[in-house]
Write a protein that binds this DNA or RNA. Structure first.
Lengths: 128, 128
DNA sequence: GTTGCCTTCGTTATGATATAACATTACGGT
DNA sequence: ACCGTAATGTTATATCATAACGAAGGCAAC
């Protein structure tokens, strides 16, 4: 596959600078001055970045995060997400793959696994 | 909390008749003749049904399914979803809660857990 | 170098999902 | 009947995502 283009770089940089998941439109807002003018450019970049494991989508937020890991290839981590502060912490746990295989059964071909945990992080609970 | 209203019943019935997850707008289409006229009515019903565990949201599909289980209270099952035929099979696995607790840590208050497994089911693979 | 092809990128428009804001109606308690 | 609360209805709008098409750039064959 081709190398990252300048749009891809800009989107990735924007995500890396954020400590929270960003929606495609958040990214667009932050890069509009730079170069990106339309949602589709952001989505195209995100799609390419996700294919390479540089970015992950957080399904329940319709948002995206840079992979915390620099970088050992494709994986599908889980996320722990605070509903208050919005921070999403990436994690991996080998048990997830086993649970998934048991649930799916031997004849189901697993392509992706999404595990997302929502709640309140300790700092936000303390502040409340 | 109050009982289910007629809109809630209609939405729940519609979901039960479907063997696949339905989006809010799918539900709206199928109930428009009956009574529901606007998205917000469907979303309100879904919200109430979800609170009671009668319906689950499948995050990565932006869609909803009736709980397969008639009915022992709140739970947060996982789903195995076929990308071809769209069928979502509900399952539960106690290991998920443990993985989630370990990932979140002792000071994180877990509210919901979403585990979704995507791929191809056996019949669809055979057909392809 | 120029032709043809493929991939990327830009632009416009539109489709799909979800909620805000506020008016109206239904209904139980007293 | 009166009030308060919950449910419902209506309109408008916010948010998320992709379709369709054309222009620009790279690259190999000739």
């Amino acid at each position: 596959m081709a190398n990252l283009g300048s749009n891809d770089q800009r989107v990735l940089t924007t995500l890396k600078k954020s400590n929270k998941p960003l929606s495609a439109y958040d990214i667009l807002d932050r890069t509009r001055s730079a170069a990106l003018k339309a949602p589709v450019q952001v989505y195209r970049a995100l799609q390419k970045l996700e294919k390479r494991g540089l970015v992950h989508r957080v399904e329940a937020l319709n948002a995206f995060v840079a992979c915390c890991d620099d970088h050992h290839g494709l994986h599908r981590p889980g996320f722990v997400v605070c509903r208050d502060c919005g921070v999403a912490r990436e994690f991996e746990d080998k048990r997830v793959a086993r649970v998934a295989e048991d649930a799916a059964g031997p004849d189901f071909l697993i392509e992706t696994i999404s595990l997302e945990i929502y709640g309140r992080c300790a700092p936000c609970r303390a502040a409340a």
